[in-house]
Simulated assay, not measured.
Amino acid sequence: MSESLRNDILMRLKTIKGHIAGIEKMVEESKECQDILLQIAAVKASLEKVGMSIIQEHAKECILASEDGKATYEDVQRIINLLIKFVK
């Protein structure tokens, strides 16, 4: 994983952590359910974006790691299985 991508992911995760702390505070303060759920939806979307970035990077690394720069059937199947698990 490139240093740039790693830094971007870490920054996004720290932002997500801050949002989760905010949600916790909202629950403690008995804020409206609608407002809490809106924040939870934002965190879910952020986590999905981080996950997709990691999957994309993994897929590139899998293909580039092969000797001829081409993924094998098994490589592609492993990436597809990972993606399926992620989106479930």
Rank of each mutant, 00 (worst) to 15 (best):
K49C: 01
S53F: 05
R12I: 05
V43N: 12
M26F: 06
I23P: 04
V43D: 06
G22V: 03
Q56R: 11
M11G: 13
L38S: 08
R6E: 12
C33G: 02
I40Q: 14
A41S: 14
R12D: 06
E29G: 00
Q34F: 14
A42K: 10
K25N: 12
M52N: 11
V50I: 11
H58I: 00
A45E: 05
V43R: 10
G18S: 04
M11R: 14
A21D: 13
M11F: 11
D8I: 02
A21I: 00
V27Q: 02
I36M: 06
R12F: 03
Q56L: 06
G51T: 04
V27N: 02
I54E: 11
R12S: 06
L38Y: 10
L38I: 07
Q39M: 03
H19T: 05
S30R: 13
T15Y: 07
E32Y: 11
L38P: 01
D35H: 06
L47W: 06
Q56S: 14
A41N: 14
G18I: 00
S46I: 10
V27K: 02
A45D: 09
A45Y: 02
K17R: 15
E48D: 15
N7A: 14
K17E: 14
G22D: 06
E28F: 08
E29I: 02
K49A: 07
I20V: 15
I54P: 12
I55G: 03
D8T: 08
K31E: 15
R6D: 12
C33T: 05
E48H: 08
G18W: 02
S53C: 03
S46E: 08
G18F: 01
K25C: 01
I9D: 01
K17I: 05
A42G: 14
L5Y: 08
Q34D: 10
M26S: 09
E48I: 03
G18R: 01
I20R: 05
L47E: 07
I16F: 13
Q34P: 01
E28S: 12
L10D: 08
I36S: 05
M52S: 01
K49H: 00
S46V: 09
I55D: 07
A42H: 05
L47G: 08
K31W: 01
K14L: 08
L10I: 13
I20Y: 02
A59V: 15
A42Q: 14
V27F: 00
M26Q: 14
K17W: 04
N7M: 11
K14F: 03
H58S: 09
Q39H: 08
M11E: 11
L5N: 04
M52E: 09
I55E: 03
A21E: 13
V43G: 11
M52A: 04
